[in-house]
Design a binder for these strands. Structure first.
Lengths: 225, 225
DNA sequence: GCGCATTTTTCCAGGATTTTAAAACGCGGT
DNA sequence: ACCGCGTTTTAAAATCCTGGAAAAATGCGC
């Protein structure tokens, strides 16, 4: 088998070095980033088979990085952390981490967990970019182009649109959209959706009164076409 | 969503009880087996969404059970063990275990790892669709195609049609249809059905006067063919 | 603390869907 | 051919849902 590529995102050079030696001697190709932003960029330019992510990064919390990666990166992300806090573990796993290991970790176990994660990769495939007619969306860079012109969206607007484009053609119910963007507990706040869908239509539709992308399914939800 | 089913294979009754209480209070349906053989049989007769497997079983070593299960069982298997032996972890993961937790485990973490594992199960599942002659229905996307052209249905119309297609060939009584779509208390409102069946026929039949899909069973109900 | 961008609330008009009511139809029996 | 009965169709009224505008609250960077 040819070398699987692994990206390490960790601010401690010693840890990176240690991981690099272990991984390379087991036939992996290793890339390194020393903070979250760099890691996201590298992953976007050259998506690896697996990401090892330290949760205690200097620029962004590892949880933030994890969430951003998970918007478009479908393969394995293993969290490494000095924290053995149960809340962190739960939060990371619920944000889409594949596994969570506490430092110091046992090398053979880490390698086995890496093998297990890569083995299960094949099924999931997410794109980091999408094109729809006059729209293009880059999930990693969080950039939208309409007729090749950049469109400025707020954070919530982008998240909502990304959720739609990831589910092209499907009806997404009000409950589902609210749960995904605002979290459980907001599932009754349908007025939020109206406001934000309306804002999105103004920005991405040729004619917001006659939307061709964001279609309302009365009584159910919305659909992106 | 309906309850995911989890099978516990563990010889210690206290552990099974503890797991059962935790899992059931989190909305899972729990099955139990007290040894490897029984576990394999139960999993074969009624494949669960996830298996919790103790590695220290009396009849076979848990590693054996794991290998046998993996010959045909594709979904998540989480290993629970009192052993914190690195070799056991590595062996289990390399034999196809989804995860490995050491007893005593933290409950919230176990639940999070279960959620993560079940989530991965789902992504590999196919989208539920049905095809009937000139009609195709995608339940998740809420899309109907007639001769490959999308047909616009209102929420109630779609729900009603989906109920019919899920029960192809069967006569559904007026009472049953009304209960499923409008709820108990509407079982006398046969008018509603007549109005909506008529609307559906206009949209999905070639000739609404001579329906080939939505057949009237006079005095009883309707049948989808 | 101030100013700006964004998110959360509120309100109401207009639109779409569901409900209600009534008329038209089809079919078997006489 | 006519009647009766259940079904289908139509169209109105009632209800519910959505979109727009804009004020209030919040968060964020300086």
């Amino acid at each position: 088998m040819n070398k699987a590529e692994i990206l390490i995102i960790d601010d401690e050079p010693q840890i990176r070095k240690l991981l690099q030696i272990n991984l390379e001697s087991n036939g992996y190709k290793v890339w390194q980033a020393e903070n979250g932003l760099e890691g996201i960029t590298m992953a976007a330019n050259h998506p690896p088979e697996l990401i090892l992510l330290d949760i205690g990064l200097p620029d962004k919390s590892g949880h933030e990085v994890l969430k951003e990666l998970r918007m478009w990166y479908g393969k394995a992300i293993i969290i490494l952390s000095v924290l053995d806090n149960e809340d962190d573990v739960v939060q990371a796993l619920d944000n889409g981490a594949t596994d969570y290991l506490t430092k110091p970790f046992r090398t053979a176990e880490l390698l086995a967990r890496i093998r297990a994660s890569i083995r299960r990769n094949e099924t999931t495939e997410l794109r980091s970019k999408d094109e729809f007619d006059d729209l293009s969306i880059d999930y990693a860079a969080r950039v939208i182009l309409k007729n090749n012109e950049p469109v400025k969206l707020t954070a919530t607007e982008f998240n909502l649109l990304a959720l739609f484009t990831r589910n092209e053609g499907r009806v997404l119910t009000h409950r589902y959209l609210l749960k995904e963007i605002w979290g459980v507990g907001y599932q009754m706040e349908t007025q939020y959706l109206r406001v934000f869908v309306s804002a999105l239509r103004k920005k991405i539709e040729d004619n917001a009164n006659r939307p061709k992308h964001l279609i309302t399914e009365s009584g159910v939800g919305y659909r992106f076409v």
